[in-house]
Design a protein around this nucleic acid. Structure first.
Lengths: 197, 197
DNA sequence: GCCAGTATAGAACTTTTGTTCTATACCGCG
DNA sequence: CGCGGTATAGAACAAAAGTTCTATACTGGC
């Protein structure tokens, strides 16, 4: 086992500690983490992690988690198209907004799907768009859902009256679906995103 | 000056330190930060910060930055609507994606605007949508731009041939615009997002 | 102004954390 | 197998970080 590959195997373990505790380990904690008996061994390891950039140090030598490189990609919402623009000074005072925070309420139960068909085109959902889909939510009338009908996956408006379920497209070239057999709603569409360039 | 308001005045200073260094200060650093001479004073302050939740402690008493509440809102792209779903095991192996990272290439030159009109409805941009707009990009033919034409702000497709500029709507109920006087293109639409609920 | 409670100072003390040094074991290469 | 370099152990040492205690100053309410 080469020293480099051993280091590389250890990095994920270290990163998991940092994620779990929100900080770097002490030498004693490194010792426990990697089941070594000597603090000196832990210290040598720490030196390697520092060289590799996965740990940092304070001016006094204390181990710290590396600085987060994440440049925040937060944007300002300036207003509406028709209303035009605030002044640069006014703009600078506006709060910034993360799209993740804006669009994703329940990350654990949300996933994304690519749209390929055009059955919802009149709802402003185009082929190539990406939809956010939330599981575990009972669909209400008018919600857009991802469902498996008679063995096929589809995205449609959901309407239910009594026991009667209709799945309606937003495209006159497609027919309303009334599921005969198994209908499984996988999730409700909670958002749509499109990257243009 | 009540103790509480003094504490509240100090919190932003502490938070700036944490942001700048990516970690909590030691007592000596707190001392310097707030120009107090006694480490004991700094320690008492630290206790207050801990009570207030703006600092934490390790099991050994060390001061740490509070745990980031930001649950990462990263989602998995499972595939396409028509293709259906991977198995749970396969799903767990998929990488996660941040919408901020996906949609925002140049945060410093990108801002958001609300859409209120329906002139781009056939392009899948509905009233209530939010568009991302990038400044400092020369628009290419077919780009959607935010422009000020004859003193009015609008969003349209941009086409240029020679010196002739056309701004085309994506809605048959609106006319093509050929700017007579000043045309100022504020930015190019780089993304569209819609929150559905 | 007086008084109680809090804030601050200063210093000694304790614990934690990392460093230094010596020694042995392990590994890979020729 | 021998050897050099690296990994690991163990323990003493030094510095950093926090705690405890005593004392004084400050603040706000009566």
């Amino acid at each position: 086992m080469s020293p480099r590959s051993r280091l590389h195997e250890r990095i994920p373990v270290l990163n998991a500690f940092i994620r779990q505790h929100g900080r770097a380990p002490t030498l004693d904690e490194l010792r426990a983490l990697f089941q070594v008996r000597s603090k000196n061994t832990a210290s040598v390891m720490a030196g390697r992690f520092v060289e590799a950039g996965v740990l940092g140090r304070t001016a006094t030598g204390r181990l710290v988690a590396p600085r987060q490189q994440a440049s925040p990609r937060r944007l300002r919402l300036l207003g509406s198209v028709a209303a035009g623009f605030p002044s640069p000074a006014e703009e600078a005072l506006l709060d910034t907004l993360s799209l993740d925070e804006y669009l994703v309420s329940n990350p654990e139960s949300t996933f994304m799907l690519r749209v390929e068909g055009d059955s919802m085109i009149e709802a402003g959902i185009l082929p190539g768009d990406t939809v956010l889909v939330e599981r575990g939510r009972a669909p209400r009338n008018g919600d857009i859902v991802i469902a498996c009908v008679d063995g096929e996956w589809t995205m449609k408006y959901f309407y239910k009256q009594g026991r009667d379920v209709r799945l309606e497209p937003a495209n006159a070239r497609y027919a309303t679906i009334r599921p005969r057999q198994r209908l499984a709603v996988e999730g409700v569409v909670s958002g749509v995103v499109r990257k243009l360039g």
